[in-house]
C-alpha cells in the first residue's frame, strides 16, 4: 500500500499535497496496490473529495494538538500510522515540512529514501527513483534497496491530476506523545503568493536599478497571480527581503513560468530556477547568459517592456 502524507497549514490542505496524492495514486496503480493518505490534525477541506485526486482511503488522526507542525512529534505519529497501515511506500511532498520529517520517518521505518524525486520510479527491475542533483545541473537515478521505501517529490514536477472517485475516511486513534516544540508566533506576509507554492514567479535583478522601481515587477506579478522574487545582489543590497532571494543559496523554485527581468543569469541563480517549466528572460544585454537557459526572450529595456507586457496580459485576460 502507498501511504501519502497530507500536509496542512491553518487547517487547509496544501496544494503540494494534492500533487503528492496524484503522484502516490499513480504509483499505487503502477504497483497494483491501494493509495491511502494520512492526515494529522483537523482541517476544514472536503476530505471525501480527495478521491478525485486518486486517494482511496484517508486515515486521519484528528487531534487539534497536531495542527501545529512539530517535526519530532509528527515523526513519531507518522511512524506509528505507517506501521499500523503496513505501508510499503510512503510519499511526501518535498516541501518545507516534508523536508523536515520524511528522512526521520524513513530512519524509523528502516526504509531507504530519495528526496526531491522528479518522476514516478522505475519498478520494472527493482525500485529506481530519478532526482535532480548538483542543484539542478544533473540527474541521478537512485535505487532504493530496502523493503519499505520513502519518496518525497519535487513540487510542480508531476502536476495535480483529477479523476472520478470518492475517498473513504477512517479515524485513527492513538496516544499522542508530548509536543517537542511550542509555536509562539506566526508571521505571514499578507496578500503575497508564497514563492515555493507559486505557479508563476516574476523575478527582478540589478537591471531594475533600485527598490523604488519594483512597481513594474509587482504589477506584472499581480496580473499573473504570481509570486515576486529577486536575485542575490538585490537581496544583499536590501532592495528586497531575503526570503525573495532565488538561487543556489536562496530559495529554489520550480514554477510553470519564471519571468526574469534585468537578471544576467549567473550559474548560481540558474541553479535556483532551472527546474521551471518555461523561462522568459527580459534583458537589455543580448549577451546575458540567462538567454542560453531561456525558452523565450526579449532584448529590451525592462522599463518599457514590462509595463507593455503587463498591459498585454491584462488585455488577453479581459
Amino acid at each position: 500500500m502507498v501511504l501519502i502524507y497530507i500536509d496542512q497549514a491553518e487547517q487547509q490542505i496544501k496544494k503540494s499535497s494534492l500533487e503528492a496524492i496524484s503522484y502516490g495514486a499513480a504509483l499505487a496503480k503502477q504497483l497494483g496496490v491501494s493509495a491511502e493518505g494520512i492526515l494529522l490534525g483537523t482541517v476544514t477541506d472536503d476530505l471525501a473529495g480527495l478521491g478525485k485526486y486518486g486517494l482511496q482511503k484517508l486515515h486521519q488522526v484528528s487531534d487539534a494538538n497536531l495542527n501545529h507542525f512539530d517535526a519530532k512529534l509528527f515523526t513519531q505519529v507518522l511512524t506509528e500510522a505507517a506501521k499500523a497501515a503496513n505501508a510499503s511506500v510512503l510519499v511526501f511532498a518535498h516541501n518545507l515540512n516534508g523536508k523536515a520529517i520524511a528522512p526521520a520517518v524513513a530512519v524509523k521505518l528502516n526504509a531507504g529514501i530519495v528526496t526531491g524525486a522528479n518522476s514516478l520510479p522505475d519498478t520494472s527491475n527493482g525500485f529506481t527513483v530519478t532526482k535532480t542533483v548538483f542543484s539542478g545541473k544533473a540527474f541521478a537515478q537512485i535505487n532504493i534497496d530496502t523493503p519499505v521505501k520513502v519518496i518525497s517529490i519535487n513540487q510542480n514536477c508531476f502536476g495535480v491530476h483529477m479523476q472520478e472517485g470518492t475517498c473513504a475516511l477512517e479515524a485513527l486513534s492513538m496516544a499522542i506523545p508530548a509536543a517537542s516544540i511550542k509555536v509562539t508566533a506566526t508571521h505571514k506576509v499578507d496578500g503575497e503568493v508564497p514563492l515555493t507554492e507559486a505557479n508563476i514567479v516574476v523575478s527582478g535583478g540589478r537591471g531594475l536599478k533600485g527598490p523604488e522601481n519594483w512597481g513594474i515587477i509587482e504589477d506584472l506579478a499581480k496580473v499573473l497571480g504570481a509570486a515576486t522574487a529577486c536575485s542575490r545582489p538585490v537581496s544583499d543590497s536590501d532592495w528586497r527581503p531575503h526570503h525573495e532571494h532565488v538561487g543556489q543559496t536562496g530559495v529554489q523554485v520550480a514554477p510553470n513560468l519564471y519571468i526574469a527581468v534585468g537578471i544576467s543569469g549567473a550559474i548560481q541563480h540558474l541553479a535556483g530556477v532551472n527546474r521551471s517549466k518555461t523561462i522568459v528572460v527580459i534583458n537589455k544585454d543580448p549577451e546575458a547568459p540567462f538567454f542560453k537557459a531561456a525558452d523565450y526572450g526579449i532584448v529590451g529595456d525592462a522599463f518599457e517592456v514590462v509595463p507593455a507586457l503587463t498591459a498585454a496580459i491584462q488585455k488577453s485576460k479581459a
Binding site: 539542478g136 545541473k137 544533473a138 540527474f139 537515478q141 537512485i142 535505487n143 525558452d295
Partner: peptide, 17 residues
C-alpha cells in the same frame, strides 16, 4: 539503504525564441 545507478546531464535547451 540506497545505491546510485547512474547520473545523467539534463538535455540542452532547444534554444531561446
Amino acid at each position: 539503504t540506497t545505491s546510485i545507478k547512474t547520473y545523467d546531464l539534463p538535455p540542452a535547451k532547444s534554444g531561446v525564441k
